[in-house]
Nucleic acid binder design. Sequence first.
DNA 1: TTCAATGCAAATATTTTGCAATTCG
DNA 2: CGAATTGCAAAATATTTGCATTGAA
Lengths: 146, 146
Amino acid sequence: MPSKTINPEDWLAALDESGFRVTTVQEILIDIFAHSEYPLSAEQAWDMARQSRPKTGRATVYRTVEKLENLGLIRRVHGYQGCSHFVPTLPELMMLFICLTCGRTDYLDSQPLENLIQHSEDASGHHITESRLQLFGACVDCQQNA
Amino acid sequence: MPSKTINPEDWLAALDESGFRVTTVQEILIDIFAHSEYPLSAEQAWDMARQSRPKTGRATVYRTVEKLENLGLIRRVHGYQGCSHFVPTLPELMMLFICLTCGRTDYLDSQPLENLIQHSEDASGHHITESRLQLFGACVDCQQNA
DNA sequence: TTCAATGCAAATATTTTGCAATTCG
DNA sequence: CGAATTGCAAAATATTTGCATTGAA
């Protein structure tokens, strides 16, 4: 069971290292994404940001989300009708499980996926530079409560 | 190398079996999606449909795409800025490769993925009912032309 | 004949952009 | 101060819906 270590400080450092400014709004948004157990859309993040800072602009949130995605700090995940929701990216390649009942996310051991990708590269001849694996189903808790 | 056998006839049969009518517009759209080598958005499909049938309505295309997705005949794939593009679903579980250079899609042998899912279920305790694996990179041709 | 399917236009929803004001470094 | 960031409003996209008409079974 891989530990989920997401540190907002690291995200701020990443912002800084990339030459961006560390602003209040971005701190708030980083905190929101880094601590969410569920995939969030830009719209949802905007709502949450305004709870602690009412005058936060919608466009700022969309721009920040885009920035965080470009920096590789968050990534899009599939939902039922699109993939406008984001989850934190973890340092290594990870497999993401999303519970269809409660929506909670869980990161699984990714070693099998690395092996699979290696195997697929060899078998197909394609050069694979990025992979997305999302698994859906019922989490341990929701299976028990069913 | 798994063979890509997509038969528009089967899709029409699936429509019929589900109690839907087999109409001209839907035949055209099924043909478009079943034969495309590239992921298509509803908007792109609309453009293509109007080439053979100019008065085709945009809403009809969106409604048909939704229907085909619900029937499991097509599925969303990740693109650069979203996942509003669709590819045909193949009968068995498949791994989809998308070339970042030319956009072509390729279906890879899925046996390794089935093994991986089985392994992940055992290791995590979650019950996995659906999975999406998309691989991105450079296809064999584009590697050579680089 | 009957009701699903369609086209059209309008309504929503979502995301992006222009720009003056603000703020970090 | 100087440039990146922000808020606001407007614009551009994308998707959905209402409704009268059409067409498949």
